[in-house]
């Protein structure tokens, strides 16, 4: 009896302390293994025969300082590019997704055209689309057609990414249970109203994380438009590299992208984790709601 009591007293006090100690130990091990791993890696790189040459051509502090302002400055072009494209992509992707989801034989041509569009633009390497549009269309020499490369950069990125984003939207639309549409339609809402007020608000909320993921891709792909003569960050770093015979400007460009993209990636992961938590919570709730189905008539039994 006294032994039992003793255990009952001791346990709650000892356990958390044991937990703290083991957490501390885990942290120490993680720290040590990280230091050893990266230390070894750094040693391999730094002791390599080509290291001095690489250090000179990629890690030149003077070139870095000299090129950074103009590189950050031209990043404004990339920002402009993806901000404009993102708005257009969100709109066009939605339209494509909705058109592709139209049921019935009447809409077969619409589904066919949108399906071909999505297939083609997901199949083509982005840089080819940018080339074909950026050089091809102005090359036709049709009066009134814009010739600015920036215009074709926006058009090309919008066309490419709308194909991906429409698929993300479509997955979201299809993830909404048909009973939601049935409920909306049963109240007299039209197919469009059901989509607009009931289905899409739920679908869009679910696909925010994958959409952000695509936008991370888009932000990086803005460098591809340098090939049709838009002077953006990548083009600018090439110019700086050519002027200094040193590759450090590319390192500066890489840093700009890291600073820009990593926070967005973290936000995306956080949103995904939150969505998973919320859906699991929802599933648990739904399960609780269906429990006891078999005895559901109990309260009315007395009414005989």
């Amino acid at each position: 009896m006294s032994g039992l009591q003793g255990r009952g007293d001791g346990r709650p006090a000892r356990r958390p302390r044991g937990g703290d100690a083991s957490a501390f130990r885990s942290t120490l091990i993680a720290l040590a293994s990280t230091v050893v791993f990266f230390g070894a890696l750094a040693w391999i790189v730094v002791s390599s025969p080509g290291w001095p040459a690489i250090q000179r051509s990629f890690l030149n502090g003077k070139v870095f300082a000299a090129s950074l302002p103009s590189i950050v400055g031209s990043f404004a072009v990339n920002v402009q590019l993806f901000l404009i494209a993102e708005v257009l992509i969100l709109g066009l992707g939605m339209v494509i997704a909705v058109l592709r989801s139209l049921p019935g034989p009447v809409f077969f041509p619409v589904r066919l055209v949108t399906t071909i569009y999505v297939d083609v633009f997901r199949a083509l390497p982005g840089v080819l689309v940018i080339y074909i549009l950026g050089f091809g269309i102005p090359g036709l020499g049709i009066a009134g057609v814009p010739i600015e490369p920036f215009f074709y950069a926006v058009v090309a990125l919008t066309l490419i990414y709308s194909a991906y984003v429409s698929e993300v939207y479509r997955a979201g639309i299809e993830s909404i249970h048909p009973s939601q549409d049935a409920a909306a339609r049963s109240l007299g809402l039209s197919r469009f109203q059901s989509l607009r007020y009931v289905i899409l608000p739920q679908a869009v909320r679910r696909v925010v994380p994958p959409l952000l993921n695509d936008f991370i891709g888009l932000q990086k792909d803005t460098v591809l438009v340098s090939y049709i003569g838009v002077v953006e960050i990548f083009r600018q770093s090439y110019i700086k590299q050519a002027g200094s015979f040193n590759y450090t400007p590319y390192l500066a460009t890489a840093l700009v992208f890291l600073v820009m993209t990593i926070p967005l990636a973290r936000l995306t992961d956080w949103l995904i984790a939150r969505e998973v938590r919320r859906r699991q919570g929802g599933a648990a709730l739904a399960l609780a709601g269906t429990q006891g189905r078999g005895v559901a008539s109990a309260p009315t039994r007395g009414a005989r």
Partner: peptide, 14 residues
């Protein structure tokens, strides 16, 4: 309408 409900919640709907 009461088939998905816990028994103690059926009466309020009926």
């Amino acid at each position: 309408v009461t088939s998905a409900l816990d028994p103690e919640l059926v009466a309020e709907v009926l």
